[in-house]
Amino acid sequence: MPTPRIVVLAGGVGGSRFVRGARAALRGRGVTTTEDALTVVVNTGDDLWLSGVRLQPDVDSIVYALAGVNDAGRGWGREGDSERVNHELQEWGAGWPWFTLGDLDLGTHLARTGWLREGLTPTRVIERMSRRWPLGARLLPMTDDEVDTIVVLRDGSRIHFQEWWTRHRAALDPARFENPGIEAAAAAPGVADAITGADVVLIAPSNPVVSIGPILDVPGVREALSATSARVIGVSPIIGGRVVRGMADVCLSAIGVETSASAVAAHYGARAQGGLLDAWLVAEEDADSASVIEGRGIRTLVAPLWMKDEAHSAALAEAALSAAGV
């Protein structure tokens, strides 16, 4: 069987684990040059400027995970990192005292910012970052434009997503999420072509609202998903009615979506009815919802979704590929 061309839409910790599993699944099939087979379109809605440097949290999480240098315990940042510079910034009253920048992590941000100042686009910056480690995947930002996520609270005030998520732990009641400028943005070079030329598109078990949502809202992405002949397979980020990590339930509630595998599938919609999904993977804990999802025109498969380690992540990715018939 020829090597399938896989595109993954991903962001956050769940996305990084799933992408690592997809690479392992390809290697389990005997594919050695996985970067030719695996393209990851990464959410950049989490990005921000802080202390004069450009941060791309989801990009870095996926880069570090594929490189094997991520802090698996925390779910973000570099393993074994120190925080001397972060403490010094706090002494100067700079940055955000509740937003930790590790020293090694800051090195990444400084390198990125320097390249951006020299005129490189985020796409080119990620290409340069990928030369350091054998990632086994081609990473593309969803767009080269800056479209940070802003949380509009019920009282009408507006704060950056990272402040709402990291400082307030999603405790402030959100009315909606916005990505200012996204209507005028364009998909990064290669994104639409990768999707339309894929054999399978996988939607990672990432936050549907603030990780996958911004990718889908970039002009050209939904059109590419509609045009592709590839099967579009999604993996539920909800297991047993609960989010796996983080506060995605608060995000879902803000847009009127119940925290359930069935409701998130309905949110994405059946491709045959103008939505996104050809098939949806749900956890064994949610097997009783399969018939409901099937009734919405989305083929539903039950599989173990807990990504406890790379082997479990690879098995999940393989299940998603099998669901697409590749």
Rank of each mutant, 00 (worst) to 15 (best):
P2K: 14
I6L: 14
I6R: 03
I6G: 04
V7G: 11
V7I: 13
G15W: 11
G15Y: 11
L26H: 10
G28S: 14
V31L: 07
T32R: 15
T33Q: 12
D36C: 03
A37M: 03
T39E: 05
V40D: 03
V40A: 02
V42I: 15
N43R: 00
T44P: 05
L48E: 08
W49L: 15
L55C: 13
Q56F: 14
V59N: 02
S61H: 08
I62A: 09
V63W: 02
Y64S: 02
L66A: 14
G68N: 12
R74G: 11
R74I: 00
G77L: 09
G77C: 03
G80I: 11
G80V: 13
D81A: 06
S82M: 08
W92K: 03
A94V: 08
A94L: 15
W96S: 10
W96R: 08
P97D: 13
D103K: 01
L104E: 06
L104M: 14
T113W: 01
G114F: 09
G114N: 10
G114R: 15
G119H: 12
G119S: 12
L120W: 10
L120D: 09
T123V: 04
M129G: 02
S130T: 09
S130F: 10
S130I: 06
L135Q: 03
L135T: 02
M142G: 07
D144E: 12
D144Q: 13
D145T: 12
V147K: 04
D148Y: 14
I150Q: 14
V151Y: 09
V152N: 07
S157A: 11
I159K: 06
W165C: 03
W165G: 00
W165M: 11
T166Y: 02
H168K: 01
A171N: 10
A175S: 11
A175E: 15
E178S: 02
G181V: 02
I182G: 01
A186E: 15
A186D: 15
A188V: 07
P189N: 14
T196S: 10
T196G: 00
D199F: 09
V201G: 05
V201P: 10
V201W: 04
L202F: 05
I203C: 02
I203Y: 05
N207L: 08
N207Q: 12
P208Q: 12
G213E: 04
P214T: 13
D217R: 15
V218H: 03
G220D: 04
L225R: 06
A227L: 13
A227H: 10
T228Y: 12
A230M: 07
R231D: 05
V232M: 08
I233T: 13
I233G: 10
G234H: 04
G234D: 04
V235T: 15
P237I: 00
I238R: 04
G240R: 07
V244Y: 00
R245F: 00
G246Y: 01
G246K: 04
M247K: 12
D249C: 05
D249L: 03
V257E: 12
T259V: 08
S260E: 06
A265D: 01
A265T: 05
H267I: 00
Q273Y: 02
L277G: 01
D278L: 00
D278H: 11
A279H: 05
S289K: 09
I293L: 04
G297I: 03
G297W: 01
I298Y: 09
V302D: 05
A303M: 00
L305T: 15
L305Y: 01
W306S: 09
M307N: 03
E310Y: 06
E310L: 14
S313R: 11
A314Q: 12
A315N: 12
A320G: 14
A323E: 10
